[in-house]
Simulated scan of single mutants.
Amino acid sequence: MSIPIRVAAVQMVSGVRLEENLAQARTCVLEAAAGGARVVLLPEYFCLMGRAETDKIQAAEALGSGPIQAACAAMARDAGVHLIAGTLPLQHPSGTRVWNASLVYGPDGERVCRYDKIHLFRFQRGSESYDESRTIGAGSDPVALQLAGLRVGLSVCYDLRFPELYRAMGRAEPLDLIVVPAAFTYTTGKAHWELLLRTRAVENQCYVLAAAQGGVHDNGRRTWGHSMLIDPWGEVLEVLPEGPGIVAGAIDPTRLRQVRTDLPALEHRVL
């Protein structure tokens, strides 16, 4: 990689209607591509935020078929971008859960990679309660890949709290970019979202691109938003606090080299 690569994160407030969510995602992907983005990231649950947690089980698709995957392939192909399709529900062997899967498509519309969310969120405070393990099966394998000349590490939402995941992805070769599609709750996002994103950028000396859900959804849930692009020094380059929209910017190889030369922390790792 020798020239800046433009990337974009799409922020949404996805609802209960699959077709409307897919149409909004498509509009944003095409807009991001028109702005020069070569890599576009959608948020977690971009296709559906159901009224009940079990709604995702009804919408789950077999890998390689179904309207959600067809729409993603068409978005990537029509926009001519590398599309990291947030997460979508894939059928799980149990029949009572889904894989919360992030699928990556090339500019030709072909699927090139799959990552299943490893860490499953659980939170209880007063009347606010979440437990993803009730409807989601946990993945097991970290995934990093070459995308548009960048080494990209894939992660999803709650994964952000586990630094060992990113160390594992960058062990063989440093990451240029970490992506984090998410649907952080308002409570946890307000407390920790930016702090964690900037920390992951600093400790891995790479860019971080986060695409969030950001607003009040049809099911009454409120998500934090604040999709952002962060540079390897931990500086927030662009941020969108709330509501639908796009965050965009460039991954600059000169900046990556500068940070890693000035402070060669990756070379100083012992463990």
Rank of each mutant, 00 (worst) to 15 (best):
S2P: 00
I3N: 07
I5D: 01
R17M: 05
L18N: 11
Q24F: 00
Q24A: 14
C28S: 13
V29I: 06
E31R: 15
A37Q: 10
F46Y: 12
L48V: 03
M49E: 08
A52D: 07
A52R: 12
D55Q: 10
K56F: 00
I57A: 08
A79G: 14
A79I: 11
A79T: 13
I84Y: 10
G86P: 07
P89T: 12
P93G: 04
T96L: 13
R97M: 13
W99R: 11
N100W: 04
S102L: 11
P107D: 06
G109W: 02
G109M: 01
E110V: 13
R111T: 09
Y115S: 06
Y115D: 14
D116A: 05
D116C: 12
F123T: 01
R125C: 01
E128N: 01
I136D: 02
S140Y: 00
L147D: 08
G149T: 12
Y158S: 04
G170N: 00
A172E: 15
E173S: 10
D176W: 07
V180L: 10
A183Q: 01
W193Y: 15
W193F: 15
R198Y: 10
A210Y: 13
H217P: 08
R222A: 12
G225W: 03
I230N: 10
W233N: 09
W233H: 11
W233K: 12
G234W: 03
L237A: 04
L240H: 02
D252I: 11
L256G: 08
L266Q: 04
